Amino acid sequence: MIELKTPAEIERMQVTGRFVAEILTEVGRIADVGVNLLDLEHHVRDMIARRGAESCYWDYAPSFGRGPFRNVLCLAVNDAVLHGKPHDYVLRDGDVVTADIAVSIDGWAADSARTVVVGTPAEEDLRIVRATEEALEAAIDAARPGNRIGDISAAISAVAADHGYPVNDEFGGHGIGRTMHEDPHVSNIGRAGRGLTLRPGLTLALEPWFARTTDKIVFDEDGWTLRSADGSRTAHSEHTVAITEGDALVLTRREDELATQGA
Rank of each mutant, 00 (worst) to 15 (best):
P62S: 08
D95A: 00
H163Q: 09
A21F: 00
P121Y: 08
R127M: 13
I243L: 11
R114K: 02
G173P: 12
V103W: 00
L251W: 07
H163V: 00
H185Y: 15
H174Q: 05
D220C: 00
A31M: 02
S153R: 03
L4K: 01
P62Q: 06
V81N: 02
S63Q: 13
G107L: 08
R92T: 15
H83W: 10
D111H: 01
A135V: 02
L37R: 10
A99F: 02
M47Q: 07
R212V: 14
S104M: 05
L258E: 09
D141N: 13
V218A: 07
W58K: 13
D46S: 12
I176D: 05
L198V: 02
T132R: 00
E3N: 14
T132M: 06
L196Q: 11
T240I: 03
E3K: 15
R51N: 12
T260W: 13
R66E: 13
T179W: 15
E3L: 14
F64Q: 14
N36Q: 06
D100R: 04
G146R: 07
L249R: 15
G94M: 10
S153Y: 07
G119A: 03
W209P: 15
A138N: 05
F19W: 00
G173F: 04
A192G: 07
V27I: 06
D169R: 12
L82V: 06
T98C: 09
H181D: 05
V81L: 07
R130F: 09
N147C: 09
E11D: 14
A102T: 12
N147G: 14
G28K: 01
E3I: 15
W58N: 04
N71Q: 11
A113M: 02
V27L: 03
S232N: 11
I10R: 00
E22D: 07
A76C: 08
E182V: 12
V103C: 04
Q261I: 12
T203D: 03
S237I: 09
P121F: 01
A142E: 02
A49S: 14
I48D: 13
A229Y: 12
G246M: 09
D162K: 08
P68T: 09
K5H: 04
Y60M: 13
V118C: 11
H83D: 00
L196S: 10
I152V: 04
I140R: 01
S232L: 09
A242L: 05
H87W: 05
R178F: 07
G150R: 04
A242S: 05
G28Y: 03
G164H: 04
W224L: 08
S232Y: 13
G201W: 12
I23F: 03
T252A: 00
A263F: 11
L126C: 02
H174Y: 08
S157D: 15
L249I: 04
A49W: 06
E3P: 10
V103L: 05
S187E: 12
H42T: 15
W209V: 00
T197I: 13
V81K: 03
D215P: 06
